[in-house]
Amino acid sequence: MVAPVVSLETEVVRVPLHTPFVTALRRTEHAETLVLRLTDADGVTGWGEAPQVWRVTGDSLAGSQACLEGPLRDVLLGATGLTAAVGAVQRAVVGNAAARSAADVALHDLAARQAGLTLAAHLAAYAGAEPDRGEVLTDMTLSAGTADVLAEAARARVADGFGTLKLKVGADPAGDAARVRSVREAVGPGVVLRLDANQGWDAHQAVRILDEIRDLGVELVEQPVPRRDLLGLAHVRTHAREVGVPLLADESVFDLDDLVEVVRHRAADLVNVKLAKCGGLTPALELIRVARHHDLGVVIGCMMESHLGVGAAAALAQATGLAGAGHVHDLDAGWWVTGSPYVGGVSYDRDRIVLPDAPGLGITGPAG
């Protein structure tokens, strides 16, 4: 960053979904997010967003807006140095991960635009790495539902070009194995299946279900037990390794302290890094570095947010060598909305996230 930040604007964006999104934690028919715009003295604008995720992060639109318009405004206006500014953002408030993420992403987007670099190229340079030119691939979520509904949705999503499906389970543990079997029978052996219980099982249920699905070729199981139950998660992992199914920690890892505890308990094989959960691109880079140091795999995910947040997460994947063959992330949120609320930015081509060849996130303004 060179020219100082002179303007901060926030706007609530509510975009309808074409299909209701249902998990063990919630049901929603809209993506609700708070968009942040930072503009420097030369008229260059950086974009960020703070999605509302009451049941995961606890962040609301009103709370994020108050945070960005209050204490974070004080550290953002006048900012000229990226490293100092992103550090100040992370220190300015406790919690408020979505607001911190919006500020952090907007600062990185602004710096990338000032340098004339894509966000991925900027992040790679910031982290001292070479950007990955590989494609960023995403799975597709199947909302929680009956076995028949899931099987029908699975066939439709495969026809749409998605080779990796993530089944939302956990709302009815007794019937989850039958749901997985129904989907496997519907799509055949060539489609990759992931399960996400969203904390909906206890450790004993998880072990039982792993036994029941051991012949169904499940690639991984995400967050089977409640967030704080690391002993239970570690117990499930021991059994999961016996049946050959890795565990992915999501809600159990918000920040670096959480990741250290997961490592200490040997509770997971992979970690799901989400910007609105950890506080932005800067802490996400650190989480990825530490996870790799401890031989944990990394999936980059998203909340129910817009193309803006998906674009930042996809750029993070390219910047950290997590693109291309062997890497399928969890970045389908933009697919669910009826249309992008922005001009420019990322788009979808079947299961591929198409990043723009333009400075920063490539967003030039609101749609319409």
Results as ranks from 00 to 15, higher is better:
106 A>T: 07
106 A>E: 06
107 L>S: 06
111 A>E: 08
113 R>L: 12
113 R>H: 09
114 Q>M: 03
116 G>S: 10
119 L>V: 11
119 L>H: 05
120 A>K: 09
121 A>P: 03
121 A>K: 02
122 H>E: 12
126 Y>E: 04
127 A>S: 09
128 G>F: 13
130 E>K: 04
130 E>L: 07
132 D>V: 01
133 R>E: 14
133 R>N: 04
134 G>P: 02
134 G>N: 04
135 E>P: 00
136 V>I: 02
140 M>K: 04
140 M>Y: 03
141 T>P: 00
141 T>N: 06
141 T>W: 05
141 T>L: 09
142 L>C: 01
143 S>T: 05
144 A>D: 08
144 A>S: 11
144 A>M: 06
145 G>C: 03
145 G>T: 04
146 T>Q: 02
147 A>W: 10
147 A>R: 15
150 L>D: 04
150 L>F: 00
150 L>E: 04
150 L>C: 03
151 A>F: 07
152 E>A: 14
154 A>L: 10
154 A>C: 06
155 R>M: 11
156 A>K: 15
157 R>E: 13
158 V>R: 12
158 V>A: 08
158 V>I: 06
159 A>I: 00
159 A>H: 04
160 D>I: 04
160 D>W: 05
161 G>S: 07
161 G>M: 05
161 G>H: 09
163 G>R: 13
164 T>P: 08
165 L>E: 11
165 L>A: 04
166 K>R: 14
167 L>S: 02
169 V>G: 07
170 G>H: 03
170 G>W: 02
171 A>P: 01
172 D>R: 14
173 P>D: 14
174 A>H: 11
174 A>M: 11
174 A>W: 06
178 A>F: 01
179 R>W: 08
179 R>H: 05
180 V>H: 11
180 V>Y: 09
180 V>C: 09
181 R>A: 12
181 R>S: 05
182 S>T: 02
182 S>G: 14
182 S>E: 11
183 V>T: 08
184 R>S: 13
186 A>F: 08
187 V>Q: 13
187 V>N: 13
188 G>T: 08
189 P>Q: 13
189 P>F: 00
189 P>W: 03
190 G>Q: 15
191 V>W: 12
193 L>Q: 11
193 L>A: 08
194 R>Y: 11
197 A>C: 14
197 A>Y: 12
198 N>M: 09
198 N>H: 07
199 Q>T: 15
199 Q>W: 12
200 G>D: 09
200 G>V: 10
201 W>H: 13
201 W>P: 10
203 A>Y: 05
203 A>Q: 07
204 H>D: 15
204 H>V: 15
205 Q>Y: 03
205 Q>F: 01
205 Q>E: 15
206 A>E: 08
208 R>V: 12
